[in-house]
Write a protein that binds this DNA or RNA. Structure first.
Lengths: 341, 341
DNA sequence: TTTTTATACTAAAACGTTTTAGTATGTTTG
DNA sequence: CAAACATACTAAAACGTTTTAGTATAAAAA
């Protein structure tokens, strides 16, 4: 049977003092509130003896702060997001916050559902990888003064804190690297470009190709086709229709996975002959044969920045500062797959 | 500025009725408590109009239920755990529970810290991948009537619900499969065997080898050496000292990753020549060249079972049922790496 | 007619905190 | 010696619910 945890009331009655006094002492306000040294010690000792832990639910109700953050990503089982989650977890716990992770599957309905589920009061702040159509919901949250920091993508016209990477630059550099290695016909395989991060990746690729007087070859697979598992078929077709391609640049991790699968099925030598770069690193890329070159996001830096933007929002009374939009640099991890043999 | 959400009190005073009535109606107890149809409708309509959402913190305080579950794994960024988390997340939300994920790094101190952090009352139940030395802590939780379901591993002498796989059988089958494919000198690479799941994997391997009249070759890397990043060196040495090996069986996903890395560094042809099996599947294994054979855990089944064991614990008043220990079957995904060429 | 039963609703306590606005002393100060 | 101040402590309200134990009226049963 569940034994009742010790409460402040319990301590107070046991020591024959008031609840107020106990609360003051336990909150470190003894000096400020003129509680005598002896009594302070007595309370502290007894609390420790009884292994007192404040009931955080009661604290939340009273203070309106839950010390809970929501970390909403596209899919927590995706390596990029789970790695990020792991790092953010530690940073948040360090600051006294617990984190609820959830996956919105890049689906507006699911996003909205989740956001209203964690309705006001229940949660102190949101870190969100926004699905394309939830600009209005985010705007609502902001209007209600709920702390929000966007991650990975943002809305051009929305004044909201965000942490993203310089997708266009990253994509430009990766493409340029392929070109520097004498690849001439670089295929770019991407999806829904209506999202800020995807738009940037496409334009970076196009810029680099054009700057070097080459022709772009872009395959854009509709997002819902990918969900239906038809991504591989699209890539297969694309490769058949473009035999001239000598390199492939995949705009996301999962596209690279599908792509490698297609290459393996088609002809396992292809992987060795083509130049290959993937956006977002994966633990397995460096042990693949050939090792796959990738654009790696600064996961630690991203997590730190997220918390750095979140904390002032959590503290502020009447928010009037300009929301910060942080853009971080990526790193091109050059491996075997992008070096012309 | 943050506008105050509508409360029951607000609705009550607006409609000139009592808080009790509003609460009854909103909790669907209108009939049972003899609230008239008209008033019921009035309340419901007004609540909808005002977009009323109950303050879950207040509900938690009153009812003692937070509708929060803790899902504590070794490392949420590990593919096995993050995939599991993704599936469990959906199942839990379906039942009205939110999930806090956290990583204990297989470290007792961190485990204990986390468990006391989510102290009683704050959280309704725990799903735990236990680090080796927290048997006593778990026992405490059980004694306090806190719902706990162990995952992936368990303590032999502890009466606690758990969901694990049949590690010995899985390991036996995988080894037997290698032997059936004419591999004669199979190396087994593992770590801390004091954990139930690792013990099972080792004994399964040893059984199979002995049954077939072969000699075992086991490398056991101490867990803290792996943490320090020395795993690769151990494997490297092992391979040098055992040139006779014609196959390798890695007892965990991350050992397989280190192993493949070592093989690649040593001589990339090795990967093709050796028989290779990894415990736990990875998205990249099927697109590796050669595709890596793996022991795959039934993630969906595991998640469903976890919730199936958890729910009755969450409901029960005075628990007196015998804790269930569920053991699930794995699947050997036979790919190129384990077929003798 | 009185008693029981059903219907429609509510006052107030409780959950465990935090915090405001005190009181009751003793000690300085003008 | 009264006024001001400092010290040590506390009563009670508040946060937003749920739930127990009611009350008041009308209808049915005795």
């Amino acid at each position: 049977m569940k034994k009742k945890p010790v409460s402040i009331k319990h301590i107070a009655s046991e020591l024959n003092i008031s609840v107020t006094t106990v609360s003051f002492v336990l909150n470190g306000k003894a000096k400020e509130k003129h509680i005598s040294k002896e009594l302070t010690k007595k309370v502290l000792d007894y609390a420790k003896l009884m292994n007192y832990r404040p009931n955080q639910v009661a604290q939340s109700l009273r203070t309106g702060k839950s010390k809970l953050l929501v970390f909403m990503v596209e899919d927590i089982s995706n390596s990029f997001f789970s790695k990020l989650a792991r790092i953010f977890e530690d940073i948040a716990y360090d600051k006294g916050y617990k984190v609820i992770f959830c996956s919105n599957e890049n689906n507006d309905e699911k996003s909205n559902e989740l956001i209203t589920l964690f309705n006001f009061r229940q949660v102190d702040g949101f870190i969100i990888v926004p699905s394309p159509g939830i600009k209005d919901t985010i705007e609502e949250l902001l209007k209600d003064g709920v702390p929000v920091v966007l991650l990975d993508r943002f809305f051009e016209e929305l004044d909201c804190c965000s942490v993203v990477i310089d997708n266009a630059q990253a994509s430009f550099d990766a493409t340029q690297h392929l070109i520097d290695n004498k690849f001439k016909n670089i295929g770019f395989i991407t999806t829904a470009v209506n999202q800020s991060q995807m738009g940037g990746r496409l334009s970076g690729y196009e810029d680099a190709v054009k700057t070097n007087g080459l022709k772009p070859h872009t395959l854009q697979i509709p997002f819902n086709e990918i969900i239906k598992g038809r991504g591989k078929a699209y890539i297969h077709n694309f490769l058949n229709n473009h035999p001239e391609l000598d390199a492939l640049f995949f705009a996301t991790n999962y596209l690279a996975q599908s792509g490698l699968e297609v290459l393996k099925e088609k002809d396992s030598k292809l992987i060795r002959d083509l130049g290959i770069i993937a956006f977002d690193d994966n633990d397995m890329f460096k042990i693949y044969d050939p090792a796959i070159t990738s654009v790696s996001q600064p996961l630690v830096e991203i997590s730190i920045k997220l918390m750095e933007l979140m904390l002032p929002l959590l503290k502020k009374k009447e928010g009037s500062e300009i929301p910060q939009k942080v853009v971080l640099k990526t790193e091109l991890l050059i491996r075997e797959s992008s070096i012309m043999k």
